[in-house]
Amino acid sequence: RADKQHVLDMLFSAFEKHQYYNLKDLVDITKQPVVYLKEILKEIGVQNVKGIHKNTWELKPEYR
């Protein structure tokens, strides 16, 4: 399990490339446990629960 700041850096870097990611792809990118990753994502992102981007994560507007 990596340092939180290191995980945040990896996530922000990923979100610079694409606006939406599913959790599986973010786990592959960060190599972090799902529960730990979700904890961090809830602080900086929102999970889309409907629409064409259903079940994906994106950054909260203040982090874009």
Results as ranks from 00 to 15, higher is better:
Lys60Asp: 03
Lys17His: 04
Thr30Cys: 07
Pro33Asn: 08
Arg1Asn: 02
Glu62Gly: 09
Leu41Ala: 00
Thr30Met: 03
Lys38Trp: 07
Glu62Asn: 12
Arg64Thr: 15
Lys24Leu: 09
Glu16Gln: 12
Ile29Phe: 10
Ile44Asn: 01
Asn48Pro: 10
Glu43Lys: 05
Arg64Cys: 10
His6Phe: 13
Ser13Trp: 07
Glu62Ile: 11
Lys38Ala: 12
Lys60Thr: 05
Leu26Gln: 00
Phe15Leu: 04
Tyr36Leu: 10
Lys4Gly: 04
Leu26Ala: 01
Glu58Ala: 14
Lys4Ile: 05
Glu39Leu: 04
Tyr36Gly: 06
Pro33Arg: 04
Glu58Ile: 04
Arg1Thr: 15
Leu11Met: 15
His6Asp: 12
Glu39Arg: 10
His53Ala: 09
Tyr63Phe: 14
His53Trp: 08
Asn22Ala: 13
Gln32Val: 12
Lys54Glu: 14
Val27Tyr: 04
Asp25His: 06
Trp57Ala: 02
Val46Ile: 14
Val27Cys: 12
Thr30His: 00
Leu11Ser: 01
Ile52Asn: 09
Ala2Thr: 15
Gly51Met: 05
Val49Gly: 14
Ile29Asn: 02
Leu41Phe: 02
Lys42Phe: 05
Thr30Ile: 03
Asn22Met: 11
Asp3Glu: 07
Tyr36Thr: 13
Lys42Met: 09
Glu39Met: 06
Tyr20Val: 08
Leu41Tyr: 01
Val49Pro: 12
Val49Tyr: 13
Gly51Glu: 02
Ser13Ile: 10
Leu26His: 00
Lys4Phe: 02
Lys60Leu: 06
Val35Cys: 14
Val35Trp: 11
Pro61Ile: 03
Glu16Val: 04
Ile29Thr: 07
His6Trp: 12
Lys31Ala: 08
Lys60Ser: 07
Gln19Met: 09
Leu59Trp: 01
Gly51Ile: 02
Asn48Thr: 10
Lys17Thr: 05
Ile52Asp: 14
Asp25Thr: 08
Lys60Ile: 02
Lys60His: 04
Gln5Trp: 05
Gly45Met: 03
Ile29Val: 09
Asp25Phe: 02
Thr56Tyr: 11
Pro61Met: 08
Gln5Phe: 09
Phe15Ser: 01
Leu11Cys: 05
Ile29Leu: 12
Leu23Phe: 06
Leu59Gln: 02
Lys4Gln: 08
Lys50Asn: 13
Lys60Pro: 01
